[in-house]
């Protein structure tokens, strides 16, 4: 009961100033992943996103080692995010190379890159844990995410990055929509399809790296997959779908961060993903465009008219 009470007060933004900023930062991140996820899903990049997310782990470990050896704090976000971005890009290139240059199929490329990079990251983490520098406990949160102990500056950085991603999508929204539905038509009319696909991949990389701190690299891909899948049930219009996906992503991250603020033991990423999945199930039944309930009612009306 006490928990419920504190949850309600947190949801209503009556918690401490720091918690509020963190929740809003998480919501901004959720919105950004919701937006990018729409195009990642339509261009079938979801599984690549999963591999790329897991591949950030060796980069995070590398960032930690570099930061510590240069005399900075091992938890310094710029170092960790730069490292994460580097190995994520390397993984994306490796998947491309294997798919294009060897007989192995794309699913094998994705799975082997995911496994090898993630394993390398884990080996580096075990090495770091035996170093006597301190602060390595903080690295665990990049696996499953945590909002506990998050600083205001970090949350503001998240929000700013997320805003940049949203603006980038808005700027090329028409082109992205076109290649998502008819890549051949787009190519025939001189649109740079390869370049636009690369842009989608870059946006995926960006939100994955930004999202590490809150959602963790194991589950961040869920925020790219589940909100767009839920949004599909509310509209058939791409623009509206993107907006709804952003709202569902934001709501998932906001509630998830709030719930994990009440019980500090819970990994934030896991809670956020479960909230998103609950919203997907709700949309499946009650979505206004293709929800099961709506379709059942529609079918009855149709029978009644004939």
């Amino acid at each position: 009961m006490n928990d419920l009470h504190s949850l309600v007060s947190i949801l209503l933004l009556q918690a401490g100033y720091n918690t509020i900023v963190v929740m809003l930062g998480a919501a901004a991140l959720g919105a950004a992943t919701g937006i990018v996820g729409v195009f990642a899903m339509l261009r079938r990049r979801a599984l690549v996103a999963d591999a790329v997310a897991h591949a950030t782990l060796p980069g995070v470990a590398l960032g930690f080692i570099v930061a510590v050896s240069l005399g900075f704090s091992g938890r310094s976000l710029p170092f960790l995010m730069t490292g994460a971005a580097l190995t994520a890009i390397l993984a994306a290139l490796a998947i491309q190379w294997i798919t294009n240059r060897t007989r192995l199929t794309e699913d094998t490329a994705i799975a082997s890159v995911l496994a090898t990079f993630f394993a390398l990251g884990i080996v580096m983490l075990t090495v770091i844990q035996t170093l006597k520098t301190g602060g390595q406990a903080g690295l665990d949160i990049y696996l499953l995410g945590a909002t506990a102990g998050m600083l205001r500056e970090e949350a503001i950085t998240l929000a700013v990055f997320s805003l940049v991603v949203a603006i980038a999508v808005a700027a090329i929204f028409k082109e992205l929509t076109l290649i998502s539905f008819d890549a051949d038509y787009a190519r025939a009319h001189g649109f740079p399809v390869r370049l636009l696909d690369l842009a989608i991949l870059a946006l995926v990389l960006a939100v994955v790296v930004i999202g590490l701190r809150v959602v963790g690299l194991v589950l961040i891909v869920a925020l790219l997959i589940t909100p767009p899948a839920a949004a599909r049930f509310w509209t058939n219009h791409t623009g509206r779908m993107t907006l709804i996906s952003a709202m569902i992503g934001a709501a998932s991250a906001y509630f998830g961060a709030a719930i994990s603020a009440v019980s500090p033991d819970t990994p934030t990423g896991a809670v956020i993903v479960l909230v998103a999945f609950a919203l997907l199930l709700f949309s499946v039944f009650f979505g206004s465009a293709r929800g099961i309930v709506v379709r059942a009612l529609g079918a009855r009306q149709w029978r009644g008219a004939s």
Binding site: A46, L47, D50, V218, L219, V221, A222, I225, T226, A229, G269, A270, V271, V273, L274, A276, F277, L280
Partner: peptide, 11 residues
């Protein structure tokens, strides 16, 4: 597939 396996792992 993606939404189910992430949700199950989160659970």
């Amino acid at each position: 597939l993606g939404s189910v396996f992430t949700a199950m792992f989160a659970l």
